[in-house]
Design a binder for these strands. Structure first.
Lengths: 222, 222
DNA sequence: CAGTATTTTACGGAAATCCATAATCCGTTT
DNA sequence: AAACGGATTATGGATTTCCGTAAAATACTG
């Protein structure tokens, strides 16, 4: 069983629940951070003191505050933690049910478990902790398990996402081309943009641009 | 202090936290529903037994399940509960921070308190319960208190929302006009649609239709 | 290096949307 | 019933987006 655990979760109501889970499985050495930055610093400090954490339980979405933050959300946090301490086990605990994002967490940050916040997620979290600590297998909530089976057809790159974001911000296609030209983005011709858009529409089966942006938002891509 | 309380909250991790709050303020007679429908039935049954609840603490967003539901979210729940039992006190407890939705809860469902789920929301919830039970005043989390000051410029009606929904589903303007003609919607001319759209864009300071739909989605209107 | 294939960019017409103005409808007033 | 005001609808042109094809650039091959 895990010896030393850190929780990254901003909602106090939820972190209480998580702490209860840890107590139930007899983990007493745990810390709790309400900010990603803070969690990251704690993890780094623990490494330097030669007392590293062996489990991170992290939420994905964090409320934005007045204060400056380096790490804005759980996705970034788990990514950076994975790079910092490759052997740590990571469980994402979130309401996020978009397969696109879940899959990329397993693929990119190589998380060890994903527990969907839900009606019985407390029990599930216990189960996930147990499975990961004993067998080292990955855990994913049954409701979203299909996310991993999706064929990784996500040939959507950074530029595509930039385009979608600009569109959803009300930038016209001409303006986007201008922006791309003045920044370093290549493929900065009108044709290139139109081509990408039509590819995206095709891919997401969108009737038009409004529809496309709407779908992208629903999927959590932007 | 409140004698009998019902909680509508689907996430088990959070309802644990709420229950803790109630215990802290010495409320022992409380029930908990994970479904809006269930909460509504309990409230109605309590009225019929002449032992009505005097406080409802409700989340706003509920996970959708396989099962059929009549009441899909907290907004509808508080609305129906308010109609059923006008004297019950209602606190919404949610991560929702869109002023549009918060304001409409106070205006339409006449909720008594809004507590934003956040870093210190447990304490806030206690405070809200205390204020509402003793003075009967309304409570709103400071971070979103500005929502109520907004001039009630919300002259957005059902038809506007229908239009926005159709647009986000990829329906073209011409098609929307056709749909409106075949259904009973009045204002079913191309001009009328264009006028409404331009009014909406003006209102939301949207550069174009894509932007408009994007904003509407962010605000939780559609 | 010539020739071919592939990708990228340019171009232009069609379609959709945007926007201002004109016409029509409808209820009220005199 | 004529005159008026406000709201709705129609109209047409400007702008933007859409989409197919042509030209140019680049990569690949013998």
């Amino acid at each position: 069983m895990f010896k030393k655990v850190i929780i990254a979760e901003d909602l106090d109501a939820i972190s209480l629940g998580i702490e209860q889970v840890l107590k139930d499985v007899n983990i007493v050495d745990f810390q709790h951070s309400k900010y990603c930055d803070d969690a990251f610093l704690k993890i780094r400090a623990a490494i330097h003191k030669n007392e590293p954490y062996d489990l991170l339980i992290s939420d994905l979405s964090f409320k934005t505050d007045h204060r400056e933050v380096k790490i804005a959300n759980g996705d970034e946090l788990v990514q950076k933690v994975r790079e910092l301490q490759p052997d740590i086990k990571i469980i994402a605990y979130s309401v996020e049910d978009k397969s696109y994002r879940i899959k990329s967490l397993f693929d990119n940050a190589e998380i060890d478990g994903f527990v969907l916040k839900g009606l019985t997620s407390i029990e599930e979290l216990k189960k996930a902790i147990h499975i990961i600590s004993t067998s080292g297998e990955k855990y994913i909530s049954p409701e979203v398990a299909s996310a991993l089976q999706e064929k990784n057809n996500y040939e959507i790159d950074d530029i595509d996402i930039k385009i979608l974001k600009h569109l959803s911000d009300g930038t016209s296609q001409d303006e986007i081309v201008e922006i791309f030209k003045t920044s370093d983005v290549k493929a900065n011709s009108k044709s290139a943009l139109e081509k990408r858009l039509s590819r995206l529409k095709d891919f997401f089966k969108a009737n038009n641009t409004v529809h496309l942006v709407s779908i992208a938002k629903d999927m959590g891509i932007i």
